[in-house]
Amino acid sequence: MNIPFAIRTYAPEILREALKRMYLIRRFEEGAEDSYMRGLIHGTMHLSIGQEASAMATCIELGDNDKITSTHRGHGHCIAKGADVGRMFAEFFGKETGYCHGRGGSMHIADVKTGNLGANGIVGGGLPIAVGAALSAKRLGRPDVTVCFFGDGANNEGAFHESLNMAAVWKLPVIFVCENNGYGMSTSTARSTAVKRIADRAAGYSMPGVTVDGNDFSAVAEAVHHAIARARAGEGPSLVENLTYRWRGHSKSDRNRYRTKEEIAEWMERDPIARFRAELIAHGVLDEAGANAIETQAQAYVEAGIEFAKASPAPGIGDVTRYVYAEAQG
């Protein structure tokens, strides 16, 4: 039997932690969805259920000094990069203890200390910012890389093209990770994008571009591993396209009128968490009982996180303009 890249590359405890974080992402988003239904969370949210391998496998080699820029569908990235689900729930609940002190919510979730420069409400908004973060690393002589998550929708924004071009011209340590879930809201990539593979766009900017099964943890980890190595070696940016699927609608307003039940069911068969779990068991990284324990633990973190958020204080109404500008020193 061929041993998958991830199994032969990462220590068992790293792989078990990755599985735990994938469960954490799934349970977190289910918990967020449930809290929304109960009226504990207002506004809207964009769930990444079904895309967990893309987030986690991309982040598996990143340290806290490495940066990511995220998207409106960014909960998974945030957890994969190391954020605490209690503070994330607190943010979604609009509480002062949230990562953004209740000012950002789901669409601006960030954790600067673990290198997450933030989700973004603007499609393509994070792309130039990621290139800027990579420029900082290069100019300041730091070994960090920046991973720029974006969706298939962003590949038709001007910011995408300008960013890839500048990253290539300046040979910056950035990895562009396209999570192609097939739809920009309701518009399929087939109807919106002139190239068959978004990774083909890389050729226009003289960087490697590779398309992988985004629901295959090991395939994503391998592609990103090579891109990170290239970036750290000073050879410049790469583009990795993870083909994946969101089980839920674009946002809470989505009635799924643009895709079939059969298509959704077919993709649910390719559940990235179930696949990764089976792979870890098949290669003796853990057993069934161990996997169940990890799953139970993730559920417990999520439940504790919700309780933390519920019990947390809301921001003071008088603080509505706080954080617009830096507070005066002293």
Binding site: L127, L140, N165
Partner: peptide, 15 residues
């Protein structure tokens, strides 16, 4: 757009 955004990202991370 891209250039200004690179400046923003660089400012966010130490330059």
């Amino acid at each position: 757009l891209g250039g200004a955004g690179v400046a923003v990202g660089a400012a966010l991370t130490g330059l």
